[in-house]
Amino acid sequence: MHLERIINVRENIKDTVVKTPLLYSNIFSEMCKNNVYMKCENLQLTGAYKLRGALNKIISLNEVEKSRGVICSSAGNHAQGVAYASLLASVNATIVMPETTPYLKVESTKNYGGNVILHGKCYDDAFMKAKSLEEEEKRVFIHPFDDMDVIYGQGTIALEIFEDINDFDYLIAPIGGGGLISGLSLAAKELNPNIKIIGVQAEGAPSMALSIKNNKICTLDSVNTLADGISVKTPGNRTFEIVKDYVDEIITVSESEIVEAFLLLAEKHKLLAEASGVVTLAALNKLNVQDKKVCCIISGGNIDMLTISSLINNGLVSKGRLLCFSVELKNVPGELLKISEILAKENANVVKLEHNQFKAINRIHNVLLEVTVETNGHEHIQNILSAFKQNDYQINVMY
């Protein structure tokens, strides 16, 4: 029954939505000893899968509903999907987004014609504001995940996957409110009842995982994750029931695991994805299986340059590719040369250097040197630190 509905939705949206590529990853396959494919929804129009569900919902509205205009709450990607779909359908759209929403997502939503209101610190705050405006302005609320039209729209991704490869053992998707994984699982389980559906949440926002564990919908007191696209305090009523019945396991991943997955995807595949988009890749080492065919949904790529820079730096530090340290030196000629000689001998390339007398504890006789160097892993870092210790330098590792 669900599959037939999703097939019909695909026909309704196929002229707008891009069929995104399904790419094999040698890197992630070798890492987890499985055959890993990536469904690249980061290359979708508006930069994320959310366009699918938003477009299907707005297409399904009658003329009276369209004339009233629509409103939604979103952490960013649903906002862009609703704004773009509304633009195509000539429908007035108001979008409520958290104040913490990345600049790129806010500006992109405005560029698609959405009237943006920033409110609250997370999705749930924006949701409450949008619901109040729905009543005041008599608009039609477009829920980002707890709506069957939206869920069926997201399910069209599974149809595209199975058109390309129909014998996956595992399908892995991010979970925020649960709309994406609900649509995927409804379609995939009918197409292949033996496929395992795995959901992934950030450790700082595990609302669905907690709800499934307690067999009831639970609301988190707070959320704290760089994966803003899946930062949801309360999962949906419909999505909770679907996840409970169709999803085989929910894995949570740490912030450092997310950052490392982002860096690996960018460095090895030259693909950019937002933090919530790479949580499926971050979960690969937690599958505890080998030689299986695995499909990871890369759900979105709406990420701004400052965030990219921050994630890259954090990823490099996490993998032992950057070392920043400080050391107090005697304020006499030749001391900086000694430091340079040690670094050169250990094959550490200097990225940044600050020589500042005023930061030293003993400002009269000493100077503080802060150095950032490129390194080749954690073992290389230990070799560098050991070399300084052997030369009687007291090193303070900053990161």
Results as ranks from 00 to 15, higher is better:
Glu63Arg: 11
Ser74Gly: 09
Lys66Ser: 00
Ser90Ala: 13
Tyr84Met: 08
Ser74Pro: 13
Val82Asn: 07
Cys72His: 07
Ile71Ala: 09
Tyr84Leu: 11
Ala79Ser: 14
Asn62Pro: 05
Ile71Ser: 01
Arg68Tyr: 06
Gly69Asn: 06
Gly76Asp: 02
Tyr84Thr: 00
Ser73Tyr: 09
Gln80Glu: 04
Arg68Ser: 14
Leu88Arg: 14
Lys66Phe: 02
Asn92Glu: 14
Leu61Lys: 08
Gln80Tyr: 08
Ala93Phe: 06
Ala85Cys: 09
Ala93Asp: 00
Ala83Arg: 07
Ala79Gly: 15
Ala93Trp: 07
Glu63Tyr: 09
Cys72Leu: 08
Gln80Ser: 10
Glu63Ser: 15
Ile71Glu: 04
Val82Gly: 05
Gly81Ala: 12
Ser86Gln: 12
Ala89Glu: 15
Lys66Val: 01
Asn92Phe: 10
Gly69His: 05
Lys66Arg: 14
Ala79Met: 12
Ser74Lys: 05
Leu61Ile: 06
Glu65His: 08
Ser74Tyr: 03
Val70Met: 05
Leu88Trp: 08
Ser90Pro: 00
Val91Arg: 02
Asn92Lys: 15
Ser73Gln: 09
Val82Asp: 03
Asn62Ala: 07
Leu88Cys: 04
Ser60Pro: 02
Ser60Met: 02
Ala83Gln: 01
Ser86Glu: 11
Val82Ile: 13
Ala85Tyr: 07
Leu88Ser: 06
Gln80Asp: 08
Ser90Gly: 04
Ser90Phe: 06
Ala83Asn: 03
Glu63Gln: 13
Ala75Gln: 06
Gly76Val: 10
Asn62Leu: 03
Ala75Gly: 12
Ile71Val: 13
Ala75Val: 01
Ala89Asn: 15
Tyr84Pro: 04
Ser67Cys: 00
Ala79Pro: 05
Asn62Cys: 00
Asn62Arg: 10
Arg68Cys: 07
His78Lys: 09
Ser67Met: 04
Gly76Phe: 08
Arg68Phe: 01
Leu88Met: 13
Ala79Ile: 11
Ser67Asn: 14
Asn77Trp: 03
Ser67Gln: 13
Val70Pro: 11
Ala85Ile: 07
Ser90Arg: 15
Ser74Asp: 11
Ser74Gln: 10
Asn77His: 12
Gln80His: 10
Leu87His: 15
Val82His: 04
Val91Phe: 01
His78Glu: 12
Ala83Cys: 05
Leu87Arg: 15
Leu61Thr: 02
Glu65Val: 01
Val82Ser: 07
Ala85Asp: 08
Lys66Cys: 04
Ala75Asp: 01
Ala85Ser: 14
Ser73Lys: 03
Leu61Asn: 06
Ser86Pro: 08
Gln80Lys: 10
Ser74Glu: 06
Leu87Gln: 15
Ala85Phe: 04
Val70Leu: 12
Leu87Ser: 15
Ser86Val: 02
Gly69Thr: 02
Leu88Ala: 12
Ser90His: 14
Asn77Ser: 01
Lys66Ile: 00
Ser60Leu: 04
Val91Cys: 01
